[in-house]
C-alpha cells in the first residue's frame, strides 16, 4: 500500500504537526515500507486468534470511587501563556466542540 505525500500531509494536519516537504517525502517512503510489512503479515491465517489489544496479559485494575485530590490551580496556571480569573486563556473558539465532548 502506497502512502502518498498527500496522506502524510493529511495526518500531519490531524496531528497538528508542522512538516516540510523533505520530511514529508521521507516519511511517505518509510511508512510505505512499514505498510508493506503489515500487508505481508496480513497474509498469515489469523482466523481463530483473538485480537490482541495490549501486550500485557494482566487485566485492568479498578480503584474504589474515593476522592483524593488537592487544588493545583496555582501550580498549573503558572505554566500557561495567558490566564485570567482562574481560567486558561486561548484565542477565541466558537462552535466546534463547543465545550463538550465530540
Amino acid at each position: 500500500m502506497e502512502i502518498s505525500s498527500r496522506d502524510i500531509a493529511h495526518l500531519a494536519h490531524l496531528a497538528r504537526v508542522a512538516m516540510d516537504d523533505d520530511q514529508n517525502e521521507s516519511l511517505a517512503h518509510d511508512l510505505t515500507q512499514i505498510m508493506g510489512m503489515v500487508e505481508h503479515m496480513r497474509e498469515m491465517d489469523s482466523s481463530g486468534i483473538e485480537p490482541l489489544v495490549h501486550t500485557q496479559t494482566a487485566e485492568q485494575r479498578m480503584r474504589a470511587d474515593e476522592v483524593a485530590w488537592r487544588n493545583m490551580r496555582e501550580e498549573a496556571l503558572v505554566i500557561a501563556p495567558m490566564v485570567e480569573k482562574g481560567y486558561y486563556l486561548v484565542p477565541q473558539v466558537i462552535g466546534g466542540g463547543g465545550g463538550n465532548t465530540e
Binding site: Y87, L89, V90, P91, Q92, I94, G99, N100
Partner: peptide
C-alpha cells in the same frame, strides 16, 4: 464509558476564550 472534556467560556473575555478544566 468515556471521560468528559472541560468547558470553554466565551462571554467574559474580550477576543479570547476562557478554559475551565
Amino acid at each position: 464509558l468515556e471521560e468528559d472534556a472541560g468547558k470553554s467560556v466565551h462571554e467574559n473575555f474580550i477576543g479570547m476564550s476562557g478554559i475551565d478544566l
